[in-house]
Design a binder for these strands. Sequence first.
DNA 1: ATGAAAGCGCTAACAA
DNA 2: TTGTTAGCGCTTTCAT
Lengths: 346, 346
Amino acid sequence: MVTLAEVAQHAGVSASTVSYVLSGKRSISAATRARVEHSIRQLGYHPNAGARALASSRSNIIALMVPLRTDLYVPVMMEIAMAVATTARGHGYDVLFLTGEEGPEAVRRVTGSALADAMILMDVELHDERLPLLRESRRPAVLIGLPADTDRLTCVDLDFQATGALCVTHLAALGHRELAVIGEAPAVYERHTGFAVRTLEGVRARAGELGVRVLHRPCEPGYAAMAATLARIFDERPGTSGFVVQNEYAVEPLLTLLRQQGRAVPEDVSVVAVCPEQVAVQASVRLTSVAIPAQEMGRRAVELVVAKLAGQPTDEVGLLTPELTVRASSGPLGGARAAGGTAAGG
Amino acid sequence: MVTLAEVAQHAGVSASTVSYVLSGKRSISAATRARVEHSIRQLGYHPNAGARALASSRSNIIALMVPLRTDLYVPVMMEIAMAVATTARGHGYDVLFLTGEEGPEAVRRVTGSALADAMILMDVELHDERLPLLRESRRPAVLIGLPADTDRLTCVDLDFQATGALCVTHLAALGHRELAVIGEAPAVYERHTGFAVRTLEGVRARAGELGVRVLHRPCEPGYAAMAATLARIFDERPGTSGFVVQNEYAVEPLLTLLRQQGRAVPEDVSVVAVCPEQVAVQASVRLTSVAIPAQEMGRRAVELVVAKLAGQPTDEVGLLTPELTVRASSGPLGGARAAGGTAAGG
DNA sequence: ATGAAAGCGCTAACAA
DNA sequence: TTGTTAGCGCTTTCAT
């Protein structure tokens, strides 16, 4: 293994000079810098990560805790993780991949051993067990998701409350008075996952303001579960004409079932989804949707972490504003069928 | 930060004793061990990762390179990554999450800096640029996927050649003589991804042996692409009655389109998928499928890496035997419709 | 069964 | 602008 000392000798300078060429923490004459850089390249030198971490007490590693659970939509998790990794590399950091498996203990282990300089946590629950440890620790942390108490915590998330409200506003404007929310799997609500709960709050608040009725039904993935859920909804509220779907695994089953029941989308029934753009666009009916900005969330989380590591102050909570894109799955209540008819607005 | 020296002082022993209690590399009297362990717990000591790595030249980190691309089915990548992470933790390793973005350079950087003790690579291409570097490097590496030349390389993968053959055997046994393979996106073949190419080889070889015709069509994700692909297939080979689908994004579009065209599954057309079990079970028709053992692959990769780190010899190539599970999407050619009729075997 | 001490390769004062 | 040097916290020989 090539060491810094060897580079120094090869370039005919002292070790510290090499170190400073690398870190840029003091000015170096052009000639010296050139010689050192040449030696570095020629010898194929890479600084030893452990030694560097020990001497500088900085590992240049950001830990990312991803949920072990599989009831959330996996591509979103992955997209966030990818965005975290690429953004982190752009700032000179590597990413340590931790699963939720270890639980709160992982926080202790990683901060205690100085394995990582900072942490990013995904899938935060409203009353997450890891938060007390995070607050104690003096290492920077950023949450992707919003817990109940954000005191001394930095968070990034889509504004799901606004998202829920936005969906209702859209459907109400089209004349729909009875809405159903197809939600995540029951387990997601049972463990009080922030985004699911907040969406619902947003939906209910806006529905109250606009005087529309809302029925909420969690839903397991798959066709069978969706069929049962849908049957119960129309049983209980036959007049339901608008759906808000926050469950990627339910989107296609819902569309297929509606089709089979002879309910045309969007002529008879409108559907608005909260999902990644790819899902909305590739569905069998192009979906009116609020996109989940997974990349943006990952990117912002890293940028906040990096800012904190640089000692810059950051906001506690950074909520991204939802944007609703109208596609083919929503239209006015009682809108015209097929081509030709110009639908009258609600 | 609590250091080993502080623990030693607190327990009234020397630093080396504490170190040996931690590593178990020499025998310690029960009394001493108890005192040391008590001090460790009381002080909340965690060994400093950097110092440990420097002194032992082992970081206890395994690097995992995941593809940046999004044309492969993401949940499989994630499941592998999760399995790698949890298995690694079980062996005392953490996982560094690298995206393909950096390319071959990442291999150099990670091995050169001693950031990781070993590497696991996903999404290996037949002639992968990273392989020469891996062979040079004296650090253990395991590939998930099978390159063209496996010399001095350890690989884990599903036996996709056998998988392709198995699908054809199943369909041929049911009497189907004209098959179509719905493949991954064109880009996957263009970059010579091993698994896609090998499946096709297996399909063609077995088809040749059994005298059935095969048409292969790559397919972009989404309904529109699938519709076009399907039209071309029936146009070219109207007698097609068996489908092998190796593209998770195409499964549901295919089933929906067949339904819309009035082709019943499995009475008119049989479908066999190569996909994760979850996809097969949750599809609108429960799919006869060969499961992709993502967890098993991740787990085996780590176990191989750990064995190599321990200096144990390992096989070069470990191929998992595919298993075909018969579900509702495949049946005899010209099989009976609906309930009642007992289908005559092919 | 335990201790003492020499590094591991690097960073960052302190000196010049 | 550059060099000298004292650690960073741990592992591991060498002693005892």
